[in-house]
Amino acid sequence: MNDEQLLRYGRQILLPDIDLAGQTRIKNATVLLVGLGGLGSAIAYYLAGAGIGHLILNDFDRVDWTNLQRQIVHNESRIGVNKAESARQTLVALNSDIQIDAISQRLDKPALLELAQQCDVIVDGTDNFASRQLINEISLRSAKPLVSGAAIRMEGQLSVFNVTASSPCYQCLYGNSANDEQLTCSENGVLAPVVGIIGAMQATETLKLIAGFGQTLDGRLLLLDAKNMHIRTLKLVQDPHCECHGLRGSVLLSDAQSGLP
């Protein structure tokens, strides 16, 4: 680590849990962040600031006026710009010392899996169940831990999935039952800082996984009710009926190989 980096990350290196060894692990890490909305804004900002050496940002959406209330990595001059690219521009201005790749296409399963295999941690900042289930599958197949957060209205949830073969996964918590349409921010509204609280917690869990300290939310689910400012953490166990655990570390078969139409 050079003098500039020692100065920049000094307040973090001061922490005994991080120290030079931890900061070096953070510098050498690659994180895949899917979704650069409200959660992704806080996640990306803090991970870039903290010195994650390589950030891969993926979002196919474009910035619009309704986003600016809470998606703080974007700004007025970026209206119409792809969100991954807009975030990249903001983060480069914050920290030119790290590598930031913006991917502006909607990625299919094989492409996402290829990216996941290059990274140390996957962070989910998406806004719908279908994407979340896909990212969970990618996390299982690549055997890379998944830091998952969600927020809407004045409530949020946070957990860390797929750290070990006995960790619960997103599917264990949500199954296939959830109905997307009723649960998006655009339909239900969201209080601006609530996505920031959950996003900042996701960044914290990501740094813990990478630097290797503390107790992560592996096997636990954190629930935030911001309206009453009530936080509760509960135990989460692997669902024995969850079908996706056979997926851990398994290769992706093409549709022809797997016999699907």
């Binding site: 409200g38 998406t126 806004d127 409530e155 949830q157 997307d180 921010c185 239900n188």
Partner: peptide
């Protein structure tokens, strides 16, 4: 008994 709704927004 405590009950929470599902959350997926981001």
């Amino acid at each position: 008994v405590a009950i929470w709704p599902p959350v997926a927004g981001g």
